[in-house]
Every structure is written in structure tokens, then in C-alpha cells.
């Protein structure tokens, strides 16, 4: 094809200018429309404790070496029991702090005697791997005061969360960053 030698450049330029204007307008419109219902803060990933089925993927699928999901404790929901379904193995011989009687695979739950008959359980986040084993134990026998949450000081907030992708309870969702936790108990109200 041999273009008309006199005009080609300006004609092509005109065409290009028009298209460029259109493209810019398109991008601006799209952005504007979406900005209309955008949130100024980012959204972050969080686990809905009511949907969590403790599939173990929080421990295995996070892109971090040690998952950003940790077990947290709603103290005001806890019964402070001596026999804790989340702390002791189901077949524990004794209700003591011996490693072989602990349910947690990384020994991340600390138990402390407060007064008869109450014991306080705290999570050592540095040790917790977010497997949810204790969550299941606590939920089966106790009040469900132990539950999993994404800890935002650790989470990288991947655009495509590797755990959310495979969460067997479809419990992961994006929440506004100014209310980044889905808490149980009075703090969750």
C-alpha cells in the first residue's frame, strides 16, 4: 500500500490524537466511576471466625515462612477451665503443662494458674503457626474463645491471598483497613 505522499503524516497524527484523547478519557472515566465507590483506605484480608472450618491451610499456604495467621484469644468468651479442649490433647493423661499433653504442635499456648479453679491461656504469637488445631478443640468442647485472625503487623496483604484462594471454609474476605479485625466477644461488637 502506498499512502498518499502529501498528507500521510498529519492524517495519521490526527487519527492518533483522537484515539489518544479517547483512551485518556476512557481511563479517566473508569477511574472516576470506580473512585465513586472506592474506599480511601485499602482493604485488608481477614478471616471470618464464624466460617472458619480449621482446614489447616492458614499454616500451610501463606506465602510467609511462618503464616501471618495466628490464633487469638477472646478472653471474655473463655471459661478459664482447667481441662481445656484447645490446650490439652484429647487423650492427655494428665492436665499439666507437659509437652506430650499439649495439643498445640508448636507449644504456642501458655497456661497460667490464676485462682481455683481458673486457668488463663495466652498465645505466644512468635510460636503460633496458625494451624487452627486448638481452635477446633476449643470449639468442640469449649466456648470457641480461641480463633484464627490475620495479624496485620505480619501480613503482607498480597493482592491475591494464597490462603484465601484455598480456604476450605471460604472464610477469608476483604475488610476495610480501618476495621481490620473480625473479633469475637465484646470487642467484636
Amino acid at each position: 500500500m502506498k499512502p498518499d505522499e502529501k498528507q500521510p503524516v498529519s492524517r495519521r497524527d490526527f487519527f492518533r490524537d483522537g484515539l489518544r484523547g479517547l483512551a485518556a478519557l476512557g481511563v479517566a472515566t473508569l477511574s472516576g466511576l470506580l473512585m465513586h465507590r472506592s474506599v480511601s483506605r485499602r482493604t485488608v484480608w481477614q478471616i471470618d471466625p464464624d466460617k472458619c472450618v480449621q482446614c489447616g491451610r492458614c499454616a500451610t499456604d501463606c506465602v510467609l515462612d511462618v503464616s501471618a495467621v495466628k490464633c487469638v484469644h477472646a478472653y471474655d468468651v473463655c471459661g478459664y477451665c482447667e481441662l481445656c479442649g484447645g490446650y490439652s490433647k484429647p487423650d492427655a493423661h494428665r492436665l499439666d503443662t507437659a509437652a506430650e499433653n499439649q495439643l498445640c504442635p508448636s507449644g504456642a499456648i501458655r497456661r497460667q494458674f490464676i485462682e481455683d479453679p481458673y486457668f488463663e491461656y495466652t498465645i505466644d504469637e512468635a510460636k503460633c503457626i496458625g494451624c487452627g488445631k486448638c481452635v477446633k478443640g476449643c470449639g468442640s468442647f469449649g466456648n470457641g474463645s480461641l480463633y484464627l485472625q490475620v495479624r496485620h503487623d505480619r501480613c503482607l496483604q498480597c493482592n491475591d491471598c494464597a490462603i484465601a484462594r484455598n480456604c476450605a471454609g471460604e472464610a477469608f474476605r476483604r475488610v476495610p483497613a480501618d476495621r481490620p479485625y473480625l473479633l469475637k466477644g465484646e470487642q467484636g461488637l
Binding site: 500451610t60 495439643l103 487452627g132
Partner: peptide
């Protein structure tokens, strides 16, 4: 799908 949960809380025996 990966089919096992290495951290399963297993009450089945009971």
C-alpha cells in the same frame, strides 16, 4: 486439591 490437613484435630478414634 490437596487432601489432607497435617494439623487436623482428630476426635475420630474417640
Amino acid at each position: 486439591g490437596r487432601n489432607t490437613n497435617p494439623y487436623a484435630y482428630d476426635l475420630e478414634p474417640f
